[in-house]
Design a binder for these strands. Structure first.
Length: 372
DNA sequence: AGGTGCGGGGGGA
DNA sequence: TCCCCCCGCACCT
């Protein structure tokens, strides 16, 4: 398994290096290559000093997308779009989830949103969040450049990310949605509502009431969740209420996505392979494939799901990358180490992981944590 | 609310 | 002059 994944990465690197040889252009060149023999698959996690030429039809390239948290940087050149990496938001306490994974949240792109984000607390331990800046380009953030020329979109990355991968955008969005859902259905808000109802009916205020919002038989063991749910990151149908998924995806330029940019959400890419990747492809991107996003617990009235007063608990967090990158990534920042085994430890959460809230069974929840 | 792109402008090398 | 960064604005989802 691991070997296969490794081989896959090796092949990709070979392919990339071959391509690099051909990529004699620079994004700043006055004239870029006019005749391109082939275009590249969209790379979700471009790293190091790479160049890619995408088809101008590629929706993701059109959107200058990256799973790194890249913000627009003004280079005073309207022809070349420049973006710089924001790094990753980590737990100030360097906490780990029960299964040993670290917290790697996606920095908000919007400045204000990012400041707001940093005032929140670690969804795992309630500790402070810390923005780990990217300094992979001579001490400055890694920069990505995009340039549209005719039928092609030229991409160039400068610098190697010196930090772990954050959540993908969709993971972060899912987490925010989860947070909203949690707030809307939180015990406190429901309790408040019920108090108001009771007050309106009787004028009395209930003194004590259980926070359980569901019947005991609605409790779902954590192991079941871990066994049946997977992250929906970049899954096309977050808004779907059916519970059915179009197809799973893996992410990253590693492995699977090089073969098939499955993350290119329902986009009609010309180069889309004619098959759906099996779920096991997730193994090619071990850090991201089977992790559910989780509430980004803010300090205030919103407490993190896992450790809130309710008994709701969810599978661990985003981007379970192994070890802060300088060590883990090193010369190969995008090559990632495998996750700790999940299936085997599926029951380890045991008693501490129960889901008590009805809304865990509703569509919102399953949209965020689709079934495998 | 947050993401994205654009442009003005300050400051350092 | 180049590069980095901050800011505000407009537009979009």
């Amino acid at each position: 398994m691991l070997k296969a994944a490794d081989d896959s990465v090796m092949e990709q690197e070979d392919s990339t290096s071959q391509h690099k040889e051909m990529a004699s252009w620079d994004i700043n060149d006055i004239k870029l290559p006019q005749h391109v023999s082939h275009t590249d698959w969209f790379q979700e996690w471009p790293d190091s000093y790479v160049k890619h030429i995408y088809s101008s039809e590629d929706k993701n390239a059109q959107r200058h997308h990256s799973s790194w948290a890249m913000r627009n940087t003004n280079n005073h050149n309207s022809r070349i779009l420049k973006k710089s990496c924001l790094g990753v938001v980590v737990c100030g306490n360097d906490c780990s989830t029960l299964d040993g994974r670290k917290i790697y949240l996606r920095p908000a792109i919007c400045d204000k949103a990012r400041q707001k984000q940093q005032r929140k607390c670690c969804p795992n331990c309630n500790g402070p969040l810390r923005l780990l800046s990217c300094r992979g380009h001579g001490g400055y953030p890694v920069t990505n450049f995009w340039r549209h020329e005719g039928q092609f979109i030229f991409f160039q990355s400068k610098g190697a990310h010196d930090h772990p991968r954050p959540e993908t955008k969709l993971e972060a969005e899912a987490r925010r949605s989860m947070q909203k859902a949690k707030t809307a259905f939180s015990p406190s808000s429901l309790r408040l509502k019920r108090i108001q109802e009771i007050e309106s009916l009787t004028g009395a205020v209930p003194t004590q009431e259980p926070l359980l919002l569901s019947k005991p038989d609605a409790h779902m063991p954590h192991a079941s969740f871990r066994g049946h749910l997977r992250k929906s990151s970049q899954e096309p149908m977050l808004s779907s209420c059916s519970g059915q998924l179009s197809y799973p995806r893996t992410s990253g330029e590693d492995g699977a996505s090089r073969e098939a940019p499955t993350w290119s959400r329902s986009l009609s890419l010309k180069r889309t392979p004619g098959h759906v990747l099996p779920l096991t492809k997730g193994a090619h991107h071990p850090f991201r494939s089977d992790v559910g996003p989780l509430g980004d617990g803010s300090c205030g009235e919103k407490s993190p799901l896992t450790y809130s007063g309710s008994c709701l608990s969810l599978p661990p967090y985003p981007a379970p990358q192994r070890g802060p990158c300088p060590v883990a990534s090193g010369a190969q920042p995008h090559r990632q180490l495998p996750l700790p085994p999940r299936g085997s430890g599926g029951d380890r959460g045991g008693g501490g992981h129960q889901v008590c809230l009805n809304y865990c069974n509703n569509d919102v929840f399953f949209n965020l944590y689709p079934l495998r």
